[in-house]
């Protein structure tokens, strides 16, 4: 499988989280997967301006030519994407959210009926499965995890995906690698 790990850790000081993802990438590599790690902290990704050029002017292409282009290409050519972030104020990082917002060129503006709700139409034939890897903040409780999980499940609907897991970096990287490998 082609696997992209999107590292939304904004903190240079949190080397443990980055290190965890490197271990995860290595484990997946050992299982013969082709793994790319995108360190968002070192990438230039301008926050989405909501101009919709990527839907109505240059379909599939954002007006901003920054590192989100590479991210979009990697995302759509992957079979599995791991979104990774520390929990900050009850949600994944702004760094990760800004990157997610820039993925909308990958879908189509048209609406469709998805089990009685209105969602977007796909632009591509195939989209990757998704897994969410978090590290908790001291106040993280069960409700926070529920809120995050629900929102990511809903985000998956619009990118024709499925949230395969929500895991915390306390879990051995090898076990998370196994969970990905089993897809």
């Amino acid at each position: 499988m082609k696997i992209a790990i999107i590292n939304g850790n904004p903190r240079e000081s949190d080397q443990a989280f980055d290190g965890y993802l490197e271990t995860l990438a290595a484990s997946l590599g050992d299982m013969d997967h082709e793994v790319t790690v995108h360190g968002l902290r070192g990438m230039q990704i301008i926050p989405c301006r909501g101009c919709f050029d990527c839907w109505v002017k240059t379909p599939g292409i954002c007006r901003f030519k920054d590192d989100a282009v590479e991210l979009c290409k990697s995302y759509i050519s992957s079979n599995f994407v791991v979104l990774a972030s520390p929990v900050i104020m009850g949600y994944t990082s702004a760094l990760l959210k800004n990157a997610m917002d820039r993925l909308i060129p990958l879908i189509h503006p048209y609406l469709r009926d998805e089990h009685g709700e209105v969602h977007h139409l796909p632009r591509y034939d195939a989209y990757p499965l998704m897994g969410l890897l978090l590290s908790p903040e001291p106040s993280t409780d069960r409700e926070d995890v529920e809120i995050i999980t629900d929102i990511y499940r809903r985000a998956c609907i619009n990118v024709m995906s499925e949230l395969k897991f929500v895991e915390f970096s306390e879990k051995p990287a090898r076990e998370v690698a196994n969970a990905i490998n089993n897809n």
Partner: peptide
């Protein structure tokens, strides 16, 4: 805010994170 990818826009989350010291 408008809903972006099923929740707040990333730029809005930047603001929420900036409020952390006042929590």
């Amino acid at each position: 805010f408008p809903l972006y990818v099923d929740t707040m826009p990333g730029s809005f989350k930047m603001f929420l994170e900036a409020l952390e010291p006042l929590a």
